[in-house]
């Protein structure tokens, strides 16, 4: 028996919107402490890791660990039928080949349930070790989205370089080049507007902008984004979900030929 009631249902809608274009289908792993998902895109270049902890739910019941394979496009279609203020409940029964999403309006005058077929998914799980990163940049998520969108109109790849001077995003394309430098800026009115650079060693890496732009679909989940880089590791782009968990995107770098 599985029953999870999320008062802030819009959060689940936002999570799905942030990952459904990167990953077609995925296993949702439910346990008593919360639920998680890990899935690579079809080219094995990017990976999404989602965690939503049980504490963030108004009601959370998971009698035994269970994994449910869901098509994220279909799940997104169903969650789009929930209002932004709706309470969303996910229900499942042991051995069933369906999952039910229940949507309740805040005034309880409209209650809908949508039953979705589950699917068998051969998931390839990767072990992601804890790592010490050379540089960690925390910045406003909207600023990061703006930079990725702007650079993608000039080139296909972005070089992200972190030095003690700041973080530089560079691209080049047929029409020319672009460089955007952000300096550490902690003298802001609101902490979420700060750019904070933690650097142990300078690092410079190249990534495909197409993926970075896909990750920025998670912008509505968090005011800030954290970018962690080490030369011998995929970059981690993390959007924290307040009080509940995170959506992390891992992206393999491009290497010099």
């Amino acid at each position: 028996m599985l029953e999870l009631r999320l008062v802030q249902g819009s959060l689940l809608k936002k999570v799905l919107e942030s990952i459904k274009d990167l990953v077609n289908d995925a296993n949702f792993d439910f346990s008593s402490s919360g639920f998680s998902l890990q899935s690579m895109d079809s080219s094995h270049v990017a990976l999404v890791a989602l965690l939503l902890k049980s504490e963030g739910f108004e009601h959370y019941r998971c009698d035994r660990n269970t994994s449910m394979g869901m098509n994220l496009g279909n799940m997104s279609k169903m969650l789009k039928c929930a209002g932004n203020d709706d309470i969303i409940t996910i229900k499942g029964d042991d051995g069933s080949d369906t999952v039910t999403f229940m949507f309740e309006s805040p005034t309880q005058d409209k209650i809908a349930d949508f039953e979705m077929k589950l699917m068998d998914i051969d998931s390839e799980h990767l072990g992601i070790p804890e790592a010490e990163y050379h540089a960690i940049v925390k910045m406003p998520s909207a600023e990061f989205a703006r930079i990725c969108k702007d650079l993608a109109s000039i080139g296909d790849t972005v070089v992200i370089s972190v030095t003690k001077e700041g973080v530089k995003f560079s691209t080049r394309g047929d029409i020319g080049t672009a460089n955007i430098v952000l300096r550490q800026n902690t003298t802001v009115d609101k902490p979420e507007d700060a750019t904070v650079i933690e650097m142990n060693e300078p690092v410079s890496m190249t990534f495909a902008l197409r993926y970075m732009n896909s990750f920025t679909k998670a912008t509505p989940l968090s005011n800030t984004v954290t970018i962690s880089m080490s030369p011998d590791l995929p970059v981690v782009v993390e959007y924290k979900i307040a009080e509940m968990g995170y959506v992390r995107f891992y992206l393999a770098p491009k290497m010099e030929e």
Binding site: V45, L126, T157, A252
Partner: peptide, 14 residues
């Protein structure tokens, strides 16, 4: 512009 690497180079399959 460099060759694209893949994640299984960096992370092992479980």
């Amino acid at each position: 512009l460099g060759s694209q690497t893949v994640l299984p180079i960096y992370f092992r399959h479980l």
